[in-house]
């Protein structure tokens, strides 16, 4: 991403967040809203600064080192969506079942050999194994409650 775009996006995002908090704080008393107000002012001024800096920058300035290493967007987005689905599933089928499924499917999708049977078996062992370790540590040893769903 060019430094210009990075500045523009960062500026707009921070202005947006400040605006959301601003609108939420309209009904608050002065005492409650004192620090938030100060912060909102600051973010708006600094955000505008970043935005203006972005506009002033030339288009060709290349920045950000991360970009060069290359991020596989498909994989990243699949994992983000899978995680969201995973969290929703916890509410229905419980933590441990969802975790086994998430670990199994997630690692099967991500592993380098592709969707082969042997990697599926490996992922299954991995999923059950890790869930087992989590169960042993959290539920048996520490007795910390885990999220529960309809089934478990």
């Amino acid at each position: 991403m060019s430094k210009r775009n990075s500045d523009l996006i960062a500026g707009i995002t921070s202005l947006l967040i400040a605006a959301i908090f601003w609108s939420q704080g309209l009904k608050l008393g002065t005492e409650s809203n004192l620090l938030p107000k100060v912060l909102e002012y600051f973010i708006i001024i600094a955000g505008l600064g970043v935005l203006v800096r972005g506009f002033l920058r030339g288009k060709d300035v290349q920045g950000s080192h991360e970009e060069k290493e290359g991020l596989n967007w498909t994989r990243a987005i699949v994992i983000i969506i899978a995680t969201i689905v995973y969290v929703i599933c916890i509410a229905y089928i419980g933590f441990y079942v969802s975790t086994v499924l998430y670990l199994l499917l997630g690692s099967w999708y991500l592993n380098e050999k592709g969707f082969t049977l042997s990697s599926l078996v490996f992922s299954l062992v991995f999923g059950v194994g890790v869930s087992g370790i989590l169960y042993a540590t959290f539920t048996v040893f520490l007795q910390v409650p885990t999220p529960t769903g309809l089934l478990f």
Partner: peptide, 20 residues
């Protein structure tokens, strides 16, 4: 859904202290 979860919380709790 919430109701079911509560029941199952208790069941999970049962399993938890079974050893005890």
């Amino acid at each position: 859904m919430k109701k079911g979860r509560k029941i199952l919380t208790a069941i999970a709790g049962t399993a938890l202290v079974l050893s005890l």
